[in-house]
Design a protein around this nucleic acid. Structure first.
Length: 508
RNA sequence: GGCCCUGUAGCUCAACGGCAGAGCAGUUGACUCUUAAUCAAUUGGUUGUAGGUUCAAAUCCUACCAGGGUCACCA
């Protein structure tokens, strides 16, 4: 039940007063002809032909009132729509007493939506404005938005006074955050541009965009704990997907050469500045290439997206300049760890000796981890955060990579890479395993390695094996966290700032 | 889940054991080219919740709630 505070109660009273004056605070019809930016552009376009021509530019603009400057018988307002702001000049002589009194009696609040019909002009101070002849309330605001005043400096930069910065409130009430903080709106505009740029690139590369089930009877394709749910009528337990991998690769069996999907994954794990329980994943699978071909696509894709969205391949993330243009550094996992941790894990080819070596090196590590996880631990503690420029880390331990083909030079590694930018893992890819007998063996090994019910249990997917038995072309597969890419391209420090509604606990 | 930090007016913040304050906005008034408008006056609080210590608690203690950071876990 809504308990209006004092400021809100004042606005509720104004609705009563408006209605008493015969004014509908939430009318149905709107007559907008120009966005704020279009109105200003129309004036600028007409100006070279002379002031008289420019001042005959008739517009009807609509937007949210962001500033009211009531000074007696003349008033100024700034209204804002998605395109930007435009100033209204309102005079009692032009509007008539009855309409002007709405402003004078303060029945129009900051945050209300209004419509203004008039002609364009330039004020003495030089601001292009609408000289308003008809002024209409479009929608009343009952709760005041946080006050953020802006001053435009001579050099065009905007200085803000007052702010809405409490992160909890910003996330819980994202609508207020967006309404008040222009730069937040810009992040999500850019996010949409990133997705468009990716799809454009994939189209040009000949990929087919597909959609596969979110509700899966058997989850798989990644090491993560799933969310579970239940279909009542079918009496069937289901999992929210943790990856698209197994469903997409079945499509290569079906005869598509190159497919991709962009969609939501769900992982029932910790929340952090780079983890949200639901996040946007992209995966692609392409027949007749191996992981070197996938690396090639990765470099070209990110460079292309950066060019489309930012106009160039050089970006600045949290103060660090990063060059996304090909070719990126390629480093084997073994070489990377040798460089940064000064351990050659191949000197310790079993879990027991590697664990001892890690301890001797001064690191603490959970006891009893499989060999591949120990290698991963070394990588995460010593290497990951140092990979600022785009880097492919290639050739991963076999025992933590159940869907990748073995390398040709030993039995411990597979053709897998992850790519890192700004110290963050951005994605993961393999030369995909397509031998059904080997794949079945890997499922069995994983089951031995990770107990049933463990966070990263990899259940055996019989139908996936059945598909593979029909023959799967050799292929390269790839996955990338879209949210992290958006963080990178919009210079945001946390995943919460690139998600419109990041996950929060229930409000009490 | 462990540890650390934070929670005070609509927003941003002070007060750190002794009367809970400021700026912004809000309210009232003045102003027909203002733009962080200005000038004058003025309202506004269950200090996250529940207990406890104390003559006295926003302040100290305990538990809980929420957010952030970090470690664990993961992508």
């Amino acid at each position: 039940m809504w308990q209006p505070n004092k400021l809100e109660a004042e606005r509720v009273e104004r609705i009563t007063e408006l209605e008493a004056r015969g004014i509908d605070p939430f009318p149905r019809r709107v007559r907008r002809t120009h966005s704020a930016a279009q109105a200003i552009a129309a004036y600028e376009a007409a100006e070279p032909a002379g002031a008289e021509a420019a001042q005959s530019t008739a517009v009807i603009v609509c937007g949210r009132v962001r500033r009211v400057n009531l000074k007696g018988k003349i008033s100024f307002m700034h209204i804002e729509d998605e395109s930007g702001r435009v100033q209204l000049m309102l005079r009692v002589n032009d509007l008539g007493e009855a309409t002007y009194d709405l402003i004078k009696d303060k029945l129009i609040d900051t945050d209300d939506f209004v419509e203004a019909a008039g002609t364009m002009m330039r004020t003495k101070a030089g601001e292009i404005s609408v000289l308003v002849r008809e002024f209409t309330l479009l929608a009343k605001s009952l709760s005041p938005l946080p006050v953020v005043k802006q001053q435009v400096q001579d050099d065009g930069t905007v200085v803000e006074y007052g702010e809405f910065s409490d992160v909890e409130q910003r996330y819980r009430q994202r609508y207020a955050d967006l309404a008040v903080n222009r730069e937040v709106r810009d992040v999500f505009l850019k996010r949409a541009q990133v997705l468009r740029a990716i799809r454009r690139f994939m189209d040009n590369e000949g990929f087919l965009e597909v959609e596969t089930p979110v509700l899966q009877p058997v989850y798989g394709g990644a090491a993560a704990r799933p969310f579970t749910t239940h279909h009542n009528q079918l009496k069937q337990d289901l999992y929210l997907r943790i990856s698209f991998e197994l469903y997409l690769k079945r499509l290569l069996v079906g005869g598509y050469d190159a497919v991709y999907e962009i969609g939501r994954d769900f992982r029932n794990e910790g929340v952090s500045f780079k983890h949200n329980p639901e996040f946007t994943m992209m995966e692609f699978y392409k027949a007749y290439i191996d992981y070197t071909g996938v690396m090639d696509i990765t470099e070209r894709m990110l460079a292309s997206v950066a060019r489309d969205v930012l106009g160039g391949t050089q970006i600045v993330y949290q103060g660090q300049t990063i060059e996304l243009a090909p070719s990126w550094t390629r480093l084997t996992m073994r070489e990377a760890i040798r460089q940064f941790a000064e351990i050659d894990y191949m000197d310790y080819p079993d879990a027991a000796s590697l664990e001892a070596a890690i301890r001797a090196n001064g690191d603490s590590v959970a006891p009893g981890l499989p060999w591949g996880k120990l290698v991963g631990h070394l990588f995460e503690t010593h290497v990951e955060s140092k990979l600022i420029q785009p880097t492919f880390i290639i050739d991963y331990p076999r025992d933590i990579s159940p869907f990748a083909k073995k390398v040709d030079y030993d039995d411990l590694h597979v053709e897998r890479f992850e790519f890192y930018i700004a110290g963050m893992e951005m994605g993961n890819a393999f030369t995909e395993l397509n031998d059904p007998r080997d794949q079945e063996q890997r499922f069995i090994e994983m089951a031995k390695l990770y107990k049933t019910g463990a966070d990263d249990e990899t259940p055996l997917d019989e139908d996936y094996l059945r598909a593979m038995r029909y023959g799967m072309p050799p292929n390269g597969g790839w996955g990338m966290g879209i949210d992290r890419l958006v963080m990178l391209l919009t210079d945001q420090r946390t995943i919460r700032d690139v998600l419109l509604y990041p996950h929060l606990r229930e409000e009490k």
